[in-house]
Simulated scan of single mutants.
Amino acid sequence: MNELFRLTDPLDLYLVRHPKPAVDPALCYGAADLPVAEDVAACAARLAPLLPTDARVVSSPLVRARLLAEAVSPTVHLDARLRELDFGDWELKPFADIPAEGFEVWGSTLIDFRAPGGELYADMAARVWDAFEAQRAGASALVVVAHNGPMRALTGTLLGLPPSRWLNLEFEFGRVTHLAIGPLGPKLRSFNR
């Protein structure tokens, strides 16, 4: 990670959260591959003026992210490392049926969080960082179309926030966040535009 803060070639990073998925908001979801509830073309048209036309576009392969990435760019690089956190036994389970102590761990020690049968949050953050490192190579502008969890981990890491603060970063559906990264480190240029 220290190498990133010494970048001599600037990188404009655009993080785009997928459109709202077609899922009951009372259900917990992460790695489940859900359809999109919003008009993807309209979302892409709204985002287009905010994104550079010459950027490398990379996306989670989950359909809710992939469809938006394909609507934004004719060339999309899919990277499975950008998929959302796997909530294991909690996937598509009502929040009301999930023990409260599970959410207490999630909220207090995020990086050590793992739902039963699911993925450790630290492992998700590591795979997202690996994807970022690989996808940024040779790019001056990078558009990442992904999910709230991976975007929290990546932005939190870039901005030097402790993992316990990553849940304070809330990326809205169909919105873009821009970070400019150069020799002095990352700068947050816009959030949820």
Results as ranks from 00 to 15, higher is better:
M1D: 13
M1Q: 10
N2R: 12
E3Q: 11
E3L: 10
L4N: 11
F5I: 09
L7S: 15
L7Y: 05
T8Y: 03
D9W: 05
P10L: 03
L11G: 09
L15T: 00
V16K: 00
P19W: 03
P21V: 12
V23P: 05
V23Y: 08
D24P: 00
P25K: 13
A26C: 04
A26K: 04
C28P: 05
Y29Q: 03
Y29D: 02
G30F: 04
A31R: 14
D33R: 10
P35Q: 10
A37Y: 09
A37M: 10
E38L: 10
V40E: 02
A41I: 05
C43G: 08
A48W: 00
P49W: 09
P49T: 10
L51W: 08
D54W: 04
R56M: 04
R64E: 03
R64N: 08
A65H: 04
R66N: 11
A71V: 06
A71T: 01
V72K: 08
V76K: 01
H77C: 15
A80Q: 10
R81V: 03
R81F: 01
R81S: 03
L82S: 00
R83D: 15
E84V: 07
L85S: 00
G88P: 07
G88I: 12
L92S: 04
P94Y: 01
A96H: 02
P99L: 11
P99M: 10
P99G: 12
E101F: 07
F103H: 05
F103E: 01
V105A: 14
W106Y: 15
G107C: 05
I111L: 15
F113H: 05
F113C: 05
R114E: 14
P116W: 02
G117C: 07
G118K: 03
M124F: 09
M124K: 10
A126Y: 07
R127K: 11
D130G: 09
F132M: 13
F132W: 13
E133T: 14
E133Q: 15
G138S: 13
A141R: 15
H147W: 07
P150K: 12
A153L: 07
A153S: 15
G156P: 02
G156M: 01
T157N: 06
T157A: 04
G160Q: 08
L161A: 07
P162M: 02
P163C: 11
S164H: 02
R165Y: 12
R165F: 12
E170I: 10
E170A: 15
F171M: 12
F173E: 13
G174V: 09
G174Q: 02
T177G: 02
L179F: 08
I181M: 15
I181N: 11
G185A: 03
P186W: 07
L188F: 04
